[in-house]
Amino acid sequence: MSKKIGDVILDLQNISLRFGGVKALTDISFNVRQHEIRAIIGPNGAGKSSMLNVINGVYHPQEGQIFWHGQERKRMEPHMAAQQNIARTFQNIALFKGMTVLDNIMTGRITKMKANFIEHALWFGRAKNEELEHRKKVEEVIDFLEIQHIRKTPVGRLPYGLQKRVELGRALAAEPSMLLLDEPMAGMNVEEKQDMCRFILDVNDQFGTTIVLIEHDMGVVMDISDRVVVLDYGKKIGDGVPDEVKNNEDVIRAYLGAGH
């Protein structure tokens, strides 16, 4: 692979997150470098999704600091993540079920559209031009993900694998610099997984997007990620390149149990 991994763009230091008395994350530090594919793995309930929610501002950690491009990030709201060019997909598909594939992906570009509702109602000025301009970008995403044939289908009618793909499309439409993927391959068959891997690698390669990925399929994780961080019971137990992590005693214990 010829891609160039850059500097650290996201640095998490000593993050702790509690819900009442439940400790979801305890003192976790790790960083993400530009253009890399960073996987977060761990058994169920290890705090992986909470970690993503901390990164894009859905949860607010009680302790710790987050540095985004070298600057400390203060309290943030989810919509601010979008402004900082962080997009994500969800573990349980969070598409807008009543809308078509095209509209779902168009919604991904909503922060880039500037026309106000009066222009929309009267369909003049920026409203019309923006629709056309962004439609063009959206069609590029549709071509990239090979979903031209379902453009006008309401997403509720699509099979699971395609819905996952549309959700990736919605995230890509925002042209994010960082993409958070929460189990993009859960529940897919081998062929769908292969497609999804191809899309993730292509996104990383062609657009230079940094990817933070949660995934349970170890084969996939070890194959495509540059570095892996391992969580267990809200604590970090391993961090490094795939080979390193594979041979880490703590990681093996967490996955296979103590008495293996």
């Binding site: 894009n56 919509h79 598409l95 807008f96 026309a115 109602a121 409203a127």
Partner: peptide, 19 residues
């Protein structure tokens, strides 16, 4: 338009809409 899409997004899945 995107006004309507924002409404429907909030209707269908508000967490995803805010993200």
């Amino acid at each position: 338009s995107s006004t309507g899409r924002a409404w429907m997004a909030v209707r269908d899945m508000d967490v995803a809409a805010s993200v």
